[in-house]
């Protein structure tokens, strides 16, 4: 479906030039003492928000940068960064 994203380097481009990199779950958990449950949550579990979520994208067919954006999954539009997420 139609999507445009604002690459911090290349500006607004077609969504098909990017790779989705998952919900923003924060830095990798420390390996020492990590439980399987923690691993599962980090590696696989998603909130699947129907609304605004912060997520990672890579401009794979362009500059190659990974960056975070906030996107409304219901309208598929990028929205200004929301700090409360």
């Amino acid at each position: 479906m139609a999507l445009n994203l604002n690459c911090p380097i290349c500006g607004p481009r077609s969504g098909y030039e990017f790779r989705f990199g998952g919900e923003d779950k924060g830095p990798r958990p420390a390996e020492e003492g990590a439980t399987t449950a923690l691993w599962l949550a980090y590696a696989h579990l998603n909130r699947n928000v129907a609304g605004v979520q912060r997520e990672w994208w890579c401009h794979k067919d362009g500059c190659g940068t990974w960056f975070r954006v906030c996107r409304d999954t219901v309208t598929n539009c990028e929205v200004p960064t929301v700090d409360t997420l």
Binding site: M1, A2, L3, G15, Y16, F20, N46, T73, V74
Partner: peptide, 15 residues
């Protein structure tokens, strides 16, 4: 599939 999660059922010229 279009490779990013979303809840729209929109179509695209690309596809």
């Amino acid at each position: 599939m279009d490779r990013w999660p979303n809840y729209t059922t929109g179509t695209s010229a690309y596809y």
